[in-house]
Design a protein around this nucleic acid. Structure first.
Length: 556
RNA sequence: GCCAACGUAGCUCAGCGGUAGAGCAAUCGUUUCAUAAGCGAUGGGUCGGAGGUCCGAUUCCUCCCGUUGGCACCA
């Protein structure tokens, strides 16, 4: 038995999560965690709400509420969503805990002690009337490139360019429209050039386990050379700087109005959440032998550099060889909706909770995996979903289960029978390939593999036409035994993907698999089968659903 | 602008140096055990564009076009 750490990128709590978050982060992580537990490994799966940073304060200002209240409002929404989708976290916490603050400060102090921090002056927008610095998001002005009047301090929404300070004309405070000026401010920086030799080596050894596009992207960053990066900023919402504990030369003026930067702090949640979970967290993060633990991180493509470079760099810089580093970075591209980006403000979205409640968590989980954006952006379309539900999930998979169970009623089953041509091999292959795909985090491939087996089953039963035979004949028993092994194999294979449906299926067949089985284990279960009255596992959808749901998205 | 990824049948994608593949959709045929599901067959692609390397390129190289992410104060 080995230990498996599953860390999922921490989402902001400034709004509800859309199906893209599920497909890109939470679902792959959950399938993987369930798979590992199913293998008998000890899994610790954690994540939590990323509570700090400007997106939260922006939302808070917009709504005229304190940031704490935004967090308090959305965090429970996320918890409810995970419950609905069966995302099996061992702990889903938030970054506002005392434990997280202490862990973050400890890491910062360690980095200072190990000589990886610098103090540097930078320029930042300053509002004289408020007597405070403003994050770039709070500043707007005219874009130098396209003339757009409401360009944000960091980026122009019209032409999409990243803006430097000199690129924004007539900058003003977005909220009060009073003009702002650039002023010098003092911050702590992480001295990345000092950590680059370590990261070159880390990526060289660990990058083999990553998808090639991730590896190439990270290699591109290293090739350009890392630059020092600020780890504190002028804001009042965040983890406080342990200023008095820092060496004199690193102490900051006016530190009461500064906080630790979110990019630096949020990832530390992987470590602090493990501590909060308690028990044997040290065995995950400080194992006696490094290869007793495998550490996996799941995220969207926007987060790659933070997990592939910055996070391992922070860990190594603070703890040296005394800490476990992430092994596998599994990042996904984005999910679009009906060919467009998800956008809450433009209404291009689906209420994730409604989706699972209305259509069932399992059909949605299966569909999202079937189209998972692993190597390129993918598209959720209602036509695609209904088509998948009716023709693939029910037509191929559900229907096969149903017809076999109906035909097998009242049969006396034994585990001595002969496999017909190709059946044994098809099952063996499905078990073997699914194991391989899940181990490599190729979830889409895994879902396709399973459907292939159901398809083999449909062809087989069609060729054999058992309904023409005498139910008491040996040949009938033989055919149905072949079919039932396929059903049991499907049941076993689908456990990490559609847990609720598998529980229903277990009740129908009377068989359970406590551990990921091999072919012989599946065969051995045949005599244990006790069929209950067969009921369909999934609900067929009226194609009218497509239009009804699309109207909700495109009503404006 | 720079660093990367992606662009293959109507749709979703696999293939990544040797005469273009799968699933779904479409058309035709067929079965009735099954949620009118299943099975078989057929049609459908100058593999984003232009050059280049090679006996041979969807597959390697260069450039271009389109989409996406990142580019250090969004994480």
């Amino acid at each position: 038995m080995s230990k498996i750490f599953v860390g999922v990128a921490w989402p902001y709590v400034n709004g509800d999560l859309h199906p893209g978050h599920i497909a890109g982060n939470f679902l792959p992580a959950d399938i993987f965690a369930r798979f590992q537990r199913y293998l008998g490994n000890e899994v610790l799966m954690v994540s939590g709400s990323d509570c700090y940073g400007t997106p939260i304060t922006v939302e808070a200002d917009k709504r005229g509420k304190p940031a704490e209240q935004i967090v308090a409002e959305y965090h429970p929404h996320h918890l409810e969503l995970f419950k609905q989708y069966g995302i099996s976290f061992d702990l889903y916490t938030q970054t506002t805990t005392q434990n997280h603050a202490e862990t973050t400060q400890e890491m910062l102090l360690n980095l200072a002690r190990n000589g990886y921090l610098l103090k540097q002056k930078t320029k930042q927008y300053f509002s004289a009337e408020d007597n405070k610095f403003l994050p770039d998001r709070y500043v707007e002005g005219e874009c130098k490139f396209c003339g757009y009047k409401e360009a944000r301090g960091d980026q122009c929404d019209q032409c999409g360019r990243v803006l430097e300070y000199s690129d924004l004309k007539n900058p003003v405070n977005k909220l009060t429209k009073k003009s702002v000026t650039l002023r010098e401010t003092e911050h702590l920086f992480l001295n990345w050039p000092l950590l680059q030799p370590f990261l070159d080596k880390y990526v060289d050894t660990h990058g083999q386990n990553w998808k090639s596009w991730i590896f190439k992207e990270v290699a591109g960053w290293l090739k350009k050379g890392l630059q020092p990066r600020a780890i504190t900023r002028d804001i009042n919402w965040g983890v406080k700087i342990p200023n008095e504990k820092l060496p004199k030369e690193l102490q900051l003026e006016n530190f009461q109005n500064k906080r630790i930067y979110v990019w630096f702090e949020a990832v530390i949640g992987y470590l602090s959440a493990a501590k909060e979970y308690g028990k044997n967290w040290q065995e995950f993060w400080h194992p006696e032998k490094k290869d007793e633990v495998k550490m996996y991180n799941f995220m969207g493509k926007d987060n790659v550099v933070f997990h592939c470079l910055f996070w391992p760099g922070q860990l190594y810089g603070a703890y040296g060889d005394d800490i476990k580093l992430p092994d596998v970075i599994s990042a996904n591209q984005y999910l679009n909706l009906e060919g467009q980006k998800f956008s809450k403000s433009r209404g291009i979205t689906i209420d994730s909770l409604y989706l699972a409640k209305t259509y069932g968590a399992d059909p949605v989980r299966f569909y999202l995996t079937y189209i998972m954006p692993e190597n390129s952006d993918a598209d959720f379309s209602w036509e695609g979903f209904v088509d998948f539900n009716n023709n693939i999930l029910i037509g191929i998979f559900g229907n096969f289960i149903n017809r076999v169970l109906k035909l097998s009623e009242n049969l006396k089953l034994v585990d001595k029978f002969n496999f017909d041509n190709g059946i044994e091999e098809a099952i063996h292959l499905a078990l073997q390939r699914s194991y391989r795909d899940l181990s490599k985090c190729d979830f889409k491939l895994y879902s396709h593999e399973i459907l292939l087996l159901a398809s083999v089953g449909n062809k087989y039963i069609n060729d054999k036409e058992p309904w023409r035979l005498d139910k008491n004949s040996g040949e009938y028993l033989q055919i149905m035994s072949n079919c039932l092994v396929i059903v049991l194999a499907l049941q076993a294979l689908l456990k990490p993907l559609i847990p609720e449906a598998v529980v229903k299926l277990e009740k129908l067949t009377g068989v359970e698999f406590a551990k990921w089985p091999d072919l012989n284990t599946v065969i051995a279960k045949i005599p244990e089968i006790k069929l209950s009255e067969t009921k369909p596992l999934f609900v067929k959808l009226d194609p009218e659903v497509i239009k009804l749901e699309q109207v909700k998205i495109f009503k404006r």
